[in-house]
Design a protein around this nucleic acid. Structure first.
Lengths: 364, 364
DNA sequence: TCAAAAAAAGATACCGGTGTCTATTTTAAT
DNA sequence: ATTAAAATAGACACCGGTATCTTTTTTTGA
């Protein structure tokens, strides 16, 4: 009989009864295993992982162990010790928005194959709990940075809350929304002004305008640019040529139908975004108009539809992808290509008109 | 021996030299603070957080403390202790793909405001490192589940790797790709067959077909359904009416131009997805054809373009959002509405034709 | 050559939770 | 009322890393 049969206190994991080094392949490895294998301490392995200065021979020894064992550090443990999760959160208002999806592409490309992860979190702007929902998410996740897309980005209280929680953030918009280091924007207003200048230069004088939803800064900026450009061109804004829209295809269709039913319809319609421009295109087609001969149409965004429409849409290119890249670079300067200066990052990316088929001179 | 109960441990963090209860608001709170406030142990607070059965009065006391202090548990610490991160990873091949973006909407809606987070990770299918890239990401993040979209989902080795790492996964496709509990799919083939049946019923006999890229199961399924339906209808597939495409607008345009330049062009063209259908629409417009009078066009996906085109596109609705919801429910049954049975979840969501303007009977 | 200074590696506490086992109550049974 | 059984709460180790401080090794200076 074996007298050592009884195991009184097997709480040490080294005393596991399953035999020596029984572990699942891959993920069960820890830094301790690597340290044992390399014959060094945990801390030394940690130094290698964090690229701290150390003796080359020791580093090589540890790196060889990591390579041999196929060790991958546990992100949660690092996050806990660092008190920072290697994650960037993208807060979006509407997961349907093409802008958000495009922006996300920019974010992903900037993240590349770094160890950063992207978390996407939709929140409802209408909710009275909005702020506390975001705060809870941030407190729970402790991300490296947070990005707020319009129209969330337009709330100042969100920025203040992030500062209180000590979370880096970037607000994205159509004009500067925060201090430079915390915002990324495009010059929607100037871009529209440039577009209208081109439209006027072609000879148009009756220019219809489809507004975006009131709550969006981009909508206000674009309308402001439009009006400003008209005045600069010596034209008087005609309020009957303005129609309301909600950045949706349907609202653009309705607006187009309204504008085209006027006794004196415009010779060109500027829609505040591409979806609405597509609606206007349809309204024109329904009326049997030939585009751009009978009606020119200009949009804003340069989203995927722009080239898929017939005729292809002249539209202001909104550099959403570039803004996404920029936002990540601002939040995590380490994502910058080697040698680039974080302090030299721009904050504004210019929008500008892309000429396609849907814009031509008016028939006289 | 133990008369001196006082523990003189000065290294306790309560001995911080910054004065009494000096801590940043919100995020610095820990479970210990709550326990002290409520006059219970850490473990008891943990029990409340995890909704374990306990005495109602104790629970109320702790909940009051949590509420009063505004405590939010640290996700990384939980993840470390649980050895599971409360995250779902969505692996996508191409962050440009409208399908991926739409699917993501479904995932987000299923996640809702639960404590799950969505992480999006693009990977390059062409890369020889693909498998190890995914493996490293999974080993690092230890997510609750992983979702693979086409064409990544079509690789069996990825599924095997996930099982090895003990990560739950779902493969999404146009036909079953794995065991039921691990895949979500739609019946693309049957849906195309149904669509073609409708097309034939209108009197069409010369039906053009624009293929998708070879590497995609969906492309093969859709073509197979198309051919099968022709045969069922007593028609012989005419190889000259098949054109290659790559699921892009440009490739659809080129395919449309080719098919419409045939000596005997088809009276209807079925494109394997909407982007290519949009290209065909343009090709038709360029040729001066009136749609659908001179040419009918049918797509597949029912993406955002479908309704924005002129004429609006008759297309097979691909239930991508529903598949996204389903995938999450399969990975984390807790996301199901109360009372629903996880075992009763379907795995297939049917696609079916949506009639819009672009399909009509041929002129005879 | 040997001690002092600098650099490298190690030991151990700690991040903020959960799991296990033990101590204490509460409830049930005699 | 007393005790056994069941339910509840607590103590403490542990998850897998990093930070701090100490020890050891290497380098430098006299």
């Amino acid at each position: 009989m074996d007298d050592t049969k009884r195991t009184p206190a097997p709480k040490d994991r080294n005393a596991a009864p399953l035999g020596p080094s029984v572990r699942k392949p891959g993920s069960a490895l820890t830094i301790t295993d690597v340290a044992d294998f390399a014959g060094v301490s945990k801390k030394t392995v940690s130094r290698v992982l964090n690229r701290e200065p150390m003796k080359a021979t020791t580093r090589a020894k540890v790196e060889a162990a990591i390579e041999t064992l196929g060790f991958v550090p546990n992100a949660q443990a690092r996050a806990l010790a660092f008190r920072k999760n290697f994650v960037i959160v993208l807060f979006i208002h509407d997961s349907t928005s093409p802008m958000a999806m495009t922006f996300q592409r920019g974010v992903l490309s900037a993240i590349g194959d770094s160890e950063l992860a992207l978390a996407v979190r939709p929140v409802n702007r209408e909710s009275p709990e909005l702020l506390s929902e975001i705060e809870t998410f941030l407190a729970r996740q402790k991300p490296m940075g947070a990005i707020f897309l319009p129209p969330l980005s337009e709330r100042d209280d969100i920025g203040e809350m992030c500062q209180r929680l000590n979370v880096k953030y970037v607000r994205v918009g159509s004009a500067q929304l925060d201090m430079m280091s915390r915002s990324v924007w495009s010059n929607d207003r100037e871009a529209v002004m440039g577009a209208v200048r081109d439209i006027v230069a072609l000879g148009h004088t009756r220019i219809g305008f489809v507004r975006g939803p009131k709550g969006f800064l981009s909508a206000r900026e674009r309308e402001a640019g439009f009006r400003q450009a008209l005045v600069s061109a010596g034209l008087t804004p005609d309020e009957t040529l303005f129609a309301d829209g909600r950045y949706t295809f349907d609202s653009g269709l309705a607006a187009g139908q309204a504008l085209l039913s006027l006794p004196q319809p415009p010779s060109v319609i500027f829609a505040s975004n591409d979806s609405m421009a597509a609606g206007v295109v349809r309204a024109a087609h329904e009326k049997g108009l030939r585009l751009p001969h009978d009606l020119s149409i200009v949009g804003f965004d340069d989203g995927p539809v722009a080239v898929q429409l017939w005729p292809s849409l002249t539209t202001v290119h909104w550099p959403v992808i570039e803004m996404g890249v920029l936002a990540v670079h601002k939040l995590v300067p380490e994502t910058l290509p080697a040698g680039e200066d974080p302090a030299a990052l721009p904050s504004m990316v210019a929008s500008s008109l892309i000429r396609r088929e849907s814009l031509d001179a008016p028939v006289r």
